[in-house]
Design a binder for these strands. Structure first.
Length: 204
DNA sequence: ACATTAACTGTTA
DNA sequence: TAACAGTTAATGT
């Protein structure tokens, strides 16, 4: 159930570099826009949303991550403040490693460093695809780009076997649309046999 | 809490 | 000017 996959590093290794487990309740902020990145974060259990809000207060979701995925790690190599928030969607356990220890770990473990590059590539690929399709201003194109990506990160390739793990509102916030538009567009897509809707579950 | 519908408004192809 | 996305608000699951 991953989106644009962050990577996963062995917990034992994280521990040996000063990794510590932190517990968060539902809807807690792990970091906020403007904070300086001080840690590498990896989810042990739970779900984390990366987002920000525009001038009108409308939410934009950048990603939703869960078990075994890292987040915000791109900023750890930069001396810049986070441009996004990281908020838990459920009670979540996160492993965090101080920045300097993390950089040391990268030097000590070239294979982890290589994996990190692979993870960055995937994230950039997802961003490029989404930017291109959101620029189209066609709601179906936007939603299709998102759900195609969601499905591509799954094993399941059979038609209508993949259940989209997002609410209508989350799809709207991922694509810059309104919920009502998402609902209308999903119906059109169902009529065109692009997907199925069974008791409100979106099957793709 | 999330999903749907309807009636209306403004924008645009 | 017809289609379509957004707005608002009520209603359903």
């Amino acid at each position: 159930m991953e989106v644009a996959s962050g990577m996963s590093i062995d917990e034992k290794i994280l521990n040996s570099y000063g990794g510590e487990s932190k517990l968060y309740k539902t809807s807690e902020l792990i970091f906020s826009e403007g904070d300086m990145p001080l840690y590498y974060f990896q989810i042990i259990k739970g779900i984390v949303k990366l987002n920000n809000y525009n001038e009108e207060g409308k939410e934009f979701i950048h990603n939703i991550l869960n078990e075994e995925q890292s987040f915000g790690e791109a900023l750890i190599f930069l001396d810049k403040a986070y441009p996004i928030n990281a908020e838990t969607l459920v009670a979540t356990e996160v492993m965090r490693v101080p920045k300097s220890n993390f950089l040391e770990m990268m030097n000590d473990h070239p294979s982890i460093s290589t994996q990190m590059n692979y993870s960055f590539s995937q994230q950039i690929y997802f961003k490029l695809i989404m930017i291109q399709h959101i620029a189209s201003h066609n709601p179906m194109v936007r939603i299709k780009a998102l759900i195609d990506y969601l499905k591509s990160s799954q094993q399941e390739v059979d038609a209508f076997a993949f259940q989209i793990p997002l609410t209508r509102q989350q799809i709207a916030d991922f694509t810059g649309l309104r919920v009502e538009t998402v609902i209308r567009t999903l119906k059109k897509m169902e009529n065109s046999n692009l997907l199925k809707i069974e008791n409100r579950k979106i099957l793709y």
